[in-house]
Design a protein around this nucleic acid. Structure first.
Lengths: 213, 213
DNA sequence: TCGCCCATGTGTACACTGTCCACAACAGCA
DNA sequence: TGCTGTTGTGGACAGTGTACACATGGGCGA
């Protein structure tokens, strides 16, 4: 019996961090097959535990999916932060603010292309305004994608590019545009276009946002 | 035995239009619970037929979902056509062209709000450029949503509002923006906002497209 | 008109899923 | 040391997709 446990790298009756293990397994399955591939029993199998053990940590399969989805949103945030780092400030306040919003969009689309399964999973669960800024949806630096868009818009206002009266709710517009492109790129009509065309479309979309906000 | 058949409105061994019945049942289930609610066995139950009968008309559950999704896209097109009818031409070519694109967006968002389940289902299945204009995704007037956006953009070019060099691939930008807003409204951060706020956000988004295209 | 064929629907069966219930083990505290 | 509440197990059940063999009878050729 204790042999069985050790097979799965477990020497004690207790797992230690089953919740974490299930979450990690869920993310891995989501990566491979999107939200539908997040299967509770399979997660317990990968964690080396009986199916019902999951119910000590998640109310039901939906709760697991919700947690996986939140983790995916955090990964989106991380990818955006990476893109922000790749475009460091130059000192030109106006150009920097513009680039900041652009970087958010680029990171968003890049994540959609690099991890379509995680991207789909991130947005497969109903959300709302209240929870859009909850810490469990945040990346490693503690900011959610929604907050990252907001910061970029604040910078645009501070730089005098975006008139303050247009700031309110502007994240919805920017987000909608970029999010829509992301969806179209991974399993909408734009699926299968080559990198060059995607990059071109992204560029034009960001121009549109920049000009039209 | 023949009694059983008659219970489901069937007097013959053959159903007559099982494919159509399964499709209709699928759409109904999608309306109530989105793509996940499209259950093959339940569809056959509603059609008064044994589960395996479905396999004479659809290769598997995914093929049924694909067909349901196509039908939903047709309904999106119908809703857009309705909105177009609600904004008849005035003779002012420029204003009419602008309004045409606006109507497409309004119809799109309206459908998302009125039929969230069908909307989600319409875009739950991978798509691509080739199939975006296939007749089975068309509405009652034979045009797909993708084609309706295209027509509106053509009108903008004809009216001299949109420079021809910006016409290419412009449907991607317009579509992405509106599609993104649709997603955010039904189960993104904008979910639960009241009608007034949604209308306001839609208006501003369409302004952005109009200005930024 | 008869008889056959094959498209269409049925029955049975299997693997897999989510989830409920009663039970077992054991970590940590009294 | 012994109790207790938390965590994991085992068995069971309904529901799903789908494969295989079989039944039915509508409509065609003879």
């Amino acid at each position: 019996m204790s042999d069985d446990l050790e097979v799965h790298g477990r020497t004690t009756y207790r797992h230690g961090d089953l919740r974490g293990a299930l979450l990690a397994a869920g993310v891995e399955m989501a990566r491979e097959g999107g939200p539908a591939a997040v299967v509770l029993r399979e997660a317990t199998r990968r964690a080396g535990v009986s199916p019902n053990a999951a119910y000590r940590h998640f109310a039901d399969r939906d709760a697991l999916l919700q947690a996986v989805s939140d983790a995916c949103l955090g990964l989106v945030a991380d990818r955006i932060e990476t893109e922000l780092d790749a475009h460091p400030a130059t000192g030109d306040t106006v150009a920097d603010a513009r680039m900041q919003l652009r970087a958010v969009g680029l990171g968003y689309i890049a994540f959609a292309r690099e991890e379509p399964g995680l991207f789909r999973t991130a947005f497969s669960v109903p959300d709302n305004l209240q929870s859009a800024a909850e810490p469990r949806k945040a990346g490693i630096r503690g900011r959610t994608p929604f907050q990252l868009v907001g910061s970029a818009l604040d910078a645009l206002v501070a730089a005098g590019v975006l008139p303050p009266e247009r700031r309110q709710n502007a994240e919805f517009l920017a987000w909608a545009a970029v999010h829509g492109l992301g969806m179209l790129v991974i399993d909408g009509p734009l699926r299968g276009l080559d990198d060059h065309m995607i990059a071109f479309a992204t560029d034009r979309l960001l121009d549109m946002v920049d000009r039209g906000l």
